[in-house]
C-alpha cells in the first residue's frame, strides 16, 4: 500500500471524493510552495500535484504558462523541487504527485528520476506529453522504484485507447474533461459523465477529472461524476494574484476550503 491508494480507500469508505490541488512548484518560490502545500492540506486538499516548470508547456494555457515562467525566474529546478518534497515529508503525509513534461525527466534520466523522486517522498508522476506509446522506459524505471505512473485520457480517446490506458494507469487515471489546454472553460458536463462512466468500468484505479474546473460549483458537479476532482489554473491564478501578500498560504487555503466544502456537501454518486 502507499499514500495514493490509502487516500482513495479512506475517502471511499467515508463516501467522499478526492480533491486534487495543483500548484506550480517554485511559484513564487520553493519556500512558499512548502507553505502552500501545508496550507492546502489543512484546508482539505486530499492529494497535491506539484507542477515542474518547463520552458515550453504545450498542454498549458496562459495561467500555468506564466506560473512556469515565474518559477523558472525564481531558479526552480527539478532537483530543488525534490529537496522541497523531502523537506515536506517531515511535516506531512499528504500524497504528492509531480506533473512534469518529459524532457525534464529525460534530462535527469528516467531511472535516476524515479529513484530520487521516491527517496524524496513523491508518490506518482503525470507526464502530459508522454502517451503510453512512448512510456516504456519511464514505466520500467517507475515500477522498479515504486513510483506510480498516472496516464491521461481525453474526450478524443478511442475505445481502444480507453481500454489500454485504463489498464496501464497506476494510482489513479487522469481524465481530461475537454479538448483543449489547462484553464479552458468546462462546457459539456454530460460528455464528461458519459466518458467517465465508461472509463470507470474499464479502469482498475480511481478516475480523477481535470481541466476546466474553476469554481466550487464546478468541483461539486464533477465530484458527482468521478472519484477525484483536479483543480489547477484556478488555484494557480490565486497564487499569481496574491504572490506578494503576506497571507498567501491562508488566501489559497481559503479557496481550497471552499472547493472541498462544495464537494462534501454533495451526496456521493
Amino acid at each position: 500500500m502507499n499514500r495514493l491508494d490509502d487516500t482513495f480507500q479512506r475517502l471511499k469508505a467515508e463516501g467522499q471524493k478526492a480533491l486534487i490541488a495543483y500548484i506550480m512548484a517554485g511559484d513564487p518560490s520553493l519556500q512558499e510552495t512548502e507553505a502552500l502545500v501545508l496550507a492546502m492540506e489543512k484546508s482539505g486538499a486530499d492529494i497535491i500535484e506539484l507542477g515542474v516548470p518547463f520552458s515550453d508547456p504545450i498542454a498549458d494555457g496562459p495561467v500555468i504558462q506564466k506560473a512556469a515562467e515565474r518559477a523558472l525566474r525564481s531558479g526552480t529546478t527539478l532537483r530543488k523541487i525534490l529537496r522541497t518534497v523531502a523537506s515536506l515529508r517531515s511535516k506531512t503525509q499528504v500524497p504528492l504527485v509531480l506533473m512534469a513534461y518529459y524532457n525534464s525527466i529525460y534530462a535527469m534520466g528516467e531511472a535516476a528520476f524515479c529513484r530520487l523522486a521516491v527517496e524524496a517522498g513523491v508518490d506518482g508522476v503525470i507526464v502530459p506529453d508522454m502517451p503510453p506509446e512512448e512510456a516504456g522506459p519511464l514505466e520500467t524505471a517507475a515500477v522498479q522504484a515504486g513510483l506510480k505512473t498516472i496516464f491521461l485520457l481525453a474526450p478524443t480517446s478511442t475505445p481502444a485507447r480507453r481500454a489500454m490506458v485504463a489498464k496501464r494507469s497506476r494510482g489513479f487515471l487522469y481524465y481530461v474533461s475537454l479538448t483543449g489546454i489547462t484553464g479552458a472553460k468546462l462546457t459539456n458536463l454530460e460528455e464528461v459523465r458519459r466518458n467517465v462512466t465508461k472509463i470507470r468500468q474499464a479502469a482498475d484505479v480511481p478516475v480523477a477529472v481535470g481541466f476546466g474546473i474553476a469554481t466550487p460549483q464546478d468541483a461539486a458537479q464533477v465530484a458527482g461524476i468521478a472519484d477525484g476532482v483536479i483543480v489547477g489554473s484556478a488555484i494557480v491564478r490565486q497564487v499569481g494574484e496574491h504572490a506578494h501578500d503576506s497571507g498567501l498560504p491562508e488566501r489559497v487555503g481559503q479557496f481550497v476550503r471552499s472547493l472541498k466544502a462544495a464537494m462534501a456537501a454533495l451526496p456521493a454518486a
Binding site: 502530459p128 506529453d129 502517451p131 512512448e134 478524443t156 478511442t158 479538448t179
Partner: peptide, 12 residues
C-alpha cells in the same frame, strides 16, 4: 523521433 504529444492529440 517518436510521438511525444498529449493524449488529446494522439487520436488525431
Amino acid at each position: 523521433g517518436g510521438r511525444y504529444v498529449p493524449e488529446t492529440l494522439m487520436p488525431a
